[in-house]
Simulated scan of single mutants.
Amino acid sequence: MTRIAYICMDRGVPVWGRTGSSIHVQEVIRAFRALGADVELFAASADDDPPRDLAAVPVHCVPVAQEGPRAARERSAVAANRDLRAALEDEQPFDLVYERYSLWSFAGMDFAREAGISGVLEVNAPLIDQQAEYRGLVDRQGADRIAAQVFGASRVLVALSSAIADYLGRYRGTRGRVEIIPDGVNPDRFRLDCKPALPAAHRWSVGFVGSLKPWHGLGTLVDACARLHQVHPDTRLVVVGDGPERPRLAAQAADLGVSDAVLLTGSVPPHEVPGLLASMNAAVAPYPNLPTFYFSPLKIFEYMAAGLPVVASRIGQIPEVIRDGVHGLLCAPGDAAAVAAALCRLKEDPDLGARLGRAARAHVVQHYTWNHVASRILHLAGVASYPDRALPAESLSS
């Protein structure tokens, strides 16, 4: 049996949490196990209870300071590499070390290289730039040095999008080792016969699932749904998730006179998301026109697996996954009028919505499941004779 050490040393990604990042960790582990691998988890944040089907996964907690001055927290994260290395040595042998890249972690890839086993590093974002812009970064030079070290030590670098692949290409020695593997979905979580969690109340529901962050374009969504509501008063917006933008969204809805047509559910556990999606008639990913769009949006794949017609911004990876008019409707980023028009189309033409939803689910089931993702990772790592589950060509080139 293939033994995999899965590492997540980012305190901002609680491995048993509710965010998209946490779900990503859980689904990759779940898919590795479904393919017959034995997975041990090494994590900085594993405080919550695991999902029942992952309760048997051994978890090795590696403490990292989460309070105090930022510089002290950065030093604590670097020092945690000693504890991570010791934990890996105690639990070896492994056939593969698979790590979700975090700013200060390098012990996993160094351990894999020195042990002569495969080390695969999954890079989800240009973390140095992101940390500096949104949270603050004291030792940027140290973060750059560790990034070069860990990128150089890995056998394979998994980039979730072409923008991340381009970012990795800025580092010496990465050429030829970067593979683009987008996010995936577990179709079994989003069964078409799932019972809706919300009463229909004779309303046609537009939905969003995700954290309420500025880069998700939620102001555009509220504006678009207010326009839709003017034409079709029997519509509502259901926003599933929480975050710093929630007060602003509530205030915007009040200013536009649509508070009664906007439901903000707050954070919900992952097992409640399928029922909430089943309560929606269409789902939206209204990203603004960001200068660098590096996301592989998990919400897109979940909307599609739920059989929903999707309205999304034509930006980054999204047009590679959603073919306009075939799997969903694409709009210019940040264009509330275009989003409203697309939603009106779907409201007024139920057959169009049904056709797009069926095609969307069939597309992700064929090409974008977590089992596809895990099979490809194991094939690239060369740890066993797993098939190379090919993804669409435009999603693989780096």
Rank of each mutant, 00 (worst) to 15 (best):
A56F: 09
I29S: 05
E320L: 07
E133L: 15
V310R: 02
A43K: 13
R345Y: 13
P286T: 01
T292C: 13
R248I: 10
R248S: 13
L103W: 01
S375L: 05
S397K: 10
V120D: 01
C225T: 07
Y171Q: 08
D193F: 12
D335P: 09
A393Y: 07
A224V: 11
P297N: 03
A77P: 09
F94Q: 06
A338Q: 00
D49Y: 12
S76I: 11
C8A: 08
A393H: 12
P291V: 08
V39T: 07
I180Q: 05
V123W: 02
V310G: 02
G210K: 00
P333M: 01
S397T: 10
D193S: 15
R314N: 07
V78T: 11
T220Q: 10
L198G: 12
A72C: 06
A153F: 13
A5G: 12
G243F: 07
G20E: 00
V262F: 05
E320D: 09
S397M: 13
P274Y: 05
P387K: 03
D335G: 02
C225V: 11
G257F: 07
A283N: 01
L228E: 07
R113M: 11
P244N: 10
D139H: 10
Q252A: 15
R140V: 08
L378M: 04
Y294S: 05
A37K: 11
R73M: 10
E348S: 15
P50C: 06
L277T: 05
V25E: 01
F301V: 02
M280R: 09
V364Y: 06
G169D: 12
L396H: 04
H60P: 14
H363Y: 07
L352F: 06
D183H: 00
I318M: 01
L54S: 13
P350I: 07
V258E: 06
A46R: 02
N371A: 13
I300R: 02
V383Q: 09
H216G: 06
Q26P: 06
N124T: 04
W204S: 10
V120P: 00
A197L: 14
G243N: 11
L160M: 13
P196M: 06
V273Q: 00
S211E: 10
V178N: 12
H60M: 11
V231E: 10
C61Q: 09
A44N: 01
L137N: 01
L157R: 11
V178K: 03
P288C: 05
L356V: 03
A381Q: 10
D10W: 04
V268Q: 07
D38N: 14
P69T: 08
N281R: 12
L237Y: 02
L263P: 07
V97Q: 01
N281C: 08
V97A: 04
M1A: 15
V57K: 03
I128M: 08
A125V: 04
G316Y: 00
A306V: 13
A200T: 14
D188I: 04
V268E: 00
L378A: 02
